Simulated scan of single mutants.
Amino acid sequence: MHADASPLQPGQLLARGASRLLSSYGFVSVDEVIPARGLRVDVMGLGPKGEIWVIECKSSRADFQSDHKWDGYLPWCDRFFWAVDEHFPTELLPDDTGLIIADPYGGEIIRMGPEAKLAAARRKVMIQKVATTAARRLQGLRDPEMALDVG
Protein backbone atom coordinates (compact mmCIF):
# COMPACT_ATOMS: atom_id res chain seq x y z
CA MET A 1 0.00 0.00 0.00
CA HIS A 2 1.19 3.53 -0.79
CA ALA A 3 2.41 5.24 2.38
CA ASP A 4 -0.19 8.02 2.50
CA ALA A 5 -2.96 5.92 0.89
CA SER A 6 -3.48 8.52 -1.85
CA PRO A 7 -3.99 7.31 -5.42
CA LEU A 8 -0.81 6.74 -7.38
CA GLN A 9 0.07 9.26 -10.08
CA PRO A 10 0.60 8.11 -13.72
CA GLY A 11 4.40 8.15 -13.36
CA GLN A 12 4.18 6.11 -10.15
CA LEU A 13 2.01 3.54 -11.93
CA LEU A 14 4.64 3.28 -14.69
CA ALA A 15 7.32 2.88 -12.01
CA ARG A 16 5.35 0.03 -10.46
CA GLY A 17 5.06 -1.75 -13.81
CA ALA A 18 8.75 -1.17 -14.57
CA SER A 19 9.70 -2.53 -11.14
CA ARG A 20 7.63 -5.65 -11.78
CA LEU A 21 9.43 -6.08 -15.10
CA LEU A 22 12.81 -5.72 -13.39
CA SER A 23 11.77 -8.36 -10.87
CA SER A 24 11.13 -10.79 -13.72
CA TYR A 25 14.81 -10.34 -14.69
CA GLY A 26 15.97 -11.08 -11.12
CA PHE A 27 16.45 -7.42 -10.17
CA VAL A 28 15.36 -5.64 -7.03
CA SER A 29 14.37 -2.00 -7.37
CA VAL A 30 13.88 1.15 -5.35
CA ASP A 31 11.92 4.20 -6.47
CA GLU A 32 13.25 7.75 -6.22
CA VAL A 33 16.92 7.12 -5.50
CA ILE A 34 19.28 10.10 -5.32
CA PRO A 35 22.56 9.15 -7.03
CA ALA A 36 24.06 12.63 -6.59
CA ARG A 37 22.99 16.06 -5.38
CA GLY A 38 20.31 17.51 -7.65
CA LEU A 39 19.39 14.18 -9.24
CA ARG A 40 16.55 11.80 -8.40
CA VAL A 41 15.92 8.77 -10.59
CA ASP A 42 12.44 7.32 -10.80
CA VAL A 43 13.50 3.65 -10.49
CA MET A 44 16.91 2.19 -9.80
CA GLY A 45 17.31 -1.53 -10.36
CA LEU A 46 20.01 -3.70 -8.86
CA GLY A 47 20.62 -6.88 -10.82
CA PRO A 48 21.72 -10.34 -9.72
CA LYS A 49 25.32 -9.64 -10.85
CA GLY A 50 25.43 -6.13 -9.35
CA GLU A 51 24.19 -4.37 -12.49
CA ILE A 52 22.68 -0.93 -11.99
CA TRP A 53 19.84 0.09 -14.30
CA VAL A 54 18.05 3.44 -14.19
CA ILE A 55 14.49 3.77 -15.46
CA GLU A 56 12.93 7.18 -16.00
CA CYS A 57 9.13 7.09 -16.20
CA LYS A 58 7.42 9.55 -18.51
CA SER A 59 3.65 9.76 -18.53
CA SER A 60 3.25 12.37 -21.28
CA ARG A 61 4.98 14.39 -23.98
CA ALA A 62 5.05 17.42 -21.64
CA ASP A 63 6.60 15.32 -18.85
CA PHE A 64 9.40 14.24 -21.19
CA GLN A 65 9.98 17.68 -22.69
CA SER A 66 10.28 19.29 -19.25
CA ASP A 67 12.98 16.80 -18.14
CA HIS A 68 16.35 18.46 -18.62
CA LYS A 69 18.32 16.29 -16.19
CA TRP A 70 17.96 12.77 -17.60
CA ASP A 71 21.38 12.65 -19.26
CA GLY A 72 22.89 13.42 -15.84
CA TYR A 73 21.74 9.93 -14.78
CA LEU A 74 23.89 8.14 -17.37
CA PRO A 75 27.14 8.24 -15.33
CA TRP A 76 25.32 6.51 -12.43
CA CYS A 77 24.14 3.34 -14.19
CA ASP A 78 25.18 0.50 -16.47
CA ARG A 79 22.03 0.87 -18.58
CA PHE A 80 19.42 3.62 -18.92
CA PHE A 81 15.78 3.14 -19.95
CA TRP A 82 12.65 5.18 -20.46
CA ALA A 83 9.40 3.64 -19.25
CA VAL A 84 6.33 4.93 -21.05
CA ASP A 85 2.83 3.67 -21.75
CA GLU A 86 1.64 2.31 -25.07
CA HIS A 87 0.23 5.71 -26.14
CA PHE A 88 3.44 7.69 -25.58
CA PRO A 89 5.03 9.16 -28.77
CA THR A 90 8.22 7.06 -28.58
CA GLU A 91 9.77 8.88 -31.55
CA LEU A 92 10.57 11.67 -29.05
CA LEU A 93 12.92 9.41 -27.08
CA PRO A 94 16.61 9.25 -28.01
CA ASP A 95 17.46 6.14 -30.05
CA ASP A 96 20.58 5.46 -27.98
CA THR A 97 18.59 4.81 -24.79
CA GLY A 98 16.57 1.84 -23.62
CA LEU A 99 12.81 1.69 -23.99
CA ILE A 100 10.25 -0.07 -21.82
CA ILE A 101 6.54 -0.05 -22.56
CA ALA A 102 4.80 -0.39 -19.20
CA ASP A 103 1.48 -0.24 -17.45
CA PRO A 104 0.69 -0.54 -13.73
CA TYR A 105 1.03 -4.34 -13.87
CA GLY A 106 4.23 -4.96 -15.80
CA GLY A 107 6.19 -4.03 -18.86
CA GLU A 108 8.28 -5.18 -21.77
CA ILE A 109 11.74 -4.14 -22.88
CA ILE A 110 11.33 -2.90 -26.45
CA ARG A 111 14.89 -1.65 -26.83
CA MET A 112 17.75 -2.66 -24.53
CA GLY A 113 19.67 0.33 -23.23
CA PRO A 114 23.30 0.31 -24.34
CA GLU A 115 25.73 -0.90 -21.70
CA ALA A 116 28.25 1.53 -20.19
CA LYS A 117 29.76 -0.37 -17.26
CA LEU A 118 30.29 1.58 -14.08
CA ALA A 119 33.72 1.73 -12.49
CA ALA A 120 34.01 -0.56 -9.46
CA ALA A 121 34.19 2.32 -6.95
CA ARG A 122 31.06 4.00 -8.35
CA ARG A 123 29.22 0.65 -8.49
CA LYS A 124 30.00 0.14 -4.78
CA VAL A 125 28.64 3.61 -3.96
CA MET A 126 25.45 2.96 -5.95
CA ILE A 127 24.85 -0.45 -4.37
CA GLN A 128 25.23 1.17 -0.95
CA LYS A 129 22.78 3.94 -1.93
CA VAL A 130 20.18 1.38 -3.06
CA ALA A 131 20.63 -0.64 0.14
CA THR A 132 20.57 2.40 2.43
CA THR A 133 17.51 3.92 0.73
CA ALA A 134 15.62 0.63 0.90
CA ALA A 135 16.60 -0.04 4.52
CA ARG A 136 15.58 3.44 5.67
CA ARG A 137 12.21 3.10 3.98
CA LEU A 138 11.64 -0.30 5.53
CA GLN A 139 12.64 1.05 8.93
CA GLY A 140 10.22 3.95 8.41
CA LEU A 141 7.37 1.49 7.85
CA ARG A 142 8.31 -0.49 10.93
CA ASP A 143 9.00 2.54 13.13
CA PRO A 144 7.61 5.81 11.69
CA GLU A 145 8.94 7.90 14.59
CA MET A 146 12.48 6.67 13.91
CA ALA A 147 12.13 7.53 10.21
CA LEU A 148 11.77 11.20 11.16
CA ASP A 149 15.17 11.08 12.88
CA VAL A 150 17.18 9.40 10.10
CA GLY A 151 16.04 11.60 7.20
Results as ranks from 00 to 15, higher is better:
residue 134 A to T: 11
residue 92 L to V: 01
residue 16 R to K: 13
residue 42 D to G: 04
residue 31 D to V: 12
residue 106 G to C: 08
residue 130 V to T: 07
residue 20 R to I: 12
residue 7 P to V: 12
residue 140 G to M: 08
residue 13 L to Y: 01
residue 141 L to W: 07
residue 66 S to I: 10
residue 113 G to E: 04
residue 72 G to H: 03
residue 86 E to I: 14
residue 33 V to P: 02
residue 52 I to A: 10
residue 144 P to Y: 00
residue 41 V to F: 07
residue 140 G to W: 02
residue 95 D to W: 08
residue 70 W to M: 04
residue 13 L to G: 10
residue 133 T to Q: 14
residue 124 K to L: 07
residue 28 V to Y: 03
residue 17 G to F: 09
residue 51 E to P: 01
residue 59 S to D: 14
residue 20 R to Y: 02
residue 56 E to Y: 01
residue 94 P to W: 02
residue 24 S to Q: 06
residue 74 L to S: 07
residue 39 L to E: 09
residue 23 S to F: 10
residue 109 I to S: 06
residue 59 S to W: 12
residue 106 G to T: 12
residue 112 M to G: 00
residue 23 S to T: 13
residue 11 G to P: 02
residue 100 I to Q: 03
residue 107 G to A: 05
residue 43 V to K: 08
residue 4 D to S: 14
residue 74 L to Q: 14
residue 101 I to N: 06
residue 149 D to C: 01
residue 118 L to C: 08
residue 20 R to K: 15
residue 124 K to G: 04
residue 93 L to Y: 04
residue 88 F to W: 01
residue 17 G to M: 10
residue 60 S to T: 06
residue 80 F to V: 13
residue 9 Q to D: 07
residue 27 F to M: 07
residue 34 I to W: 03
residue 104 P to E: 14
residue 75 P to F: 08
residue 80 F to D: 01
residue 10 P to T: 11
residue 30 V to C: 11
residue 30 V to K: 06
residue 114 P to H: 09
residue 3 A to H: 15
residue 47 G to R: 03
residue 41 V to P: 02
residue 106 G to S: 05
residue 112 M to E: 15
residue 28 V to E: 13
residue 88 F to S: 06
residue 10 P to I: 08
residue 69 K to L: 13
residue 13 L to D: 06
residue 30 V to L: 08
residue 148 L to P: 00
residue 100 I to N: 10
residue 39 L to M: 01
residue 28 V to K: 12
residue 125 V to I: 08
residue 24 S to A: 13
residue 82 W to Q: 05
residue 28 V to W: 06
residue 107 G to K: 05
residue 58 K to T: 05
residue 50 G to K: 05
residue 148 L to E: 05
residue 105 Y to N: 15
residue 78 D to P: 04
residue 142 R to I: 08
residue 89 P to N: 01
residue 33 V to S: 03
residue 3 A to S: 14
residue 151 G to A: 04
residue 10 P to A: 12
residue 95 D to C: 02
residue 7 P to T: 14
residue 28 V to M: 11
residue 102 A to C: 15
residue 56 E to R: 12
residue 58 K to C: 04
residue 16 R to I: 10
residue 51 E to I: 03
residue 120 A to Q: 13
residue 126 M to R: 04
residue 111 R to E: 04
residue 114 P to Q: 10
residue 14 L to V: 08
residue 114 P to Y: 02
residue 130 V to F: 14
residue 63 D to Y: 01
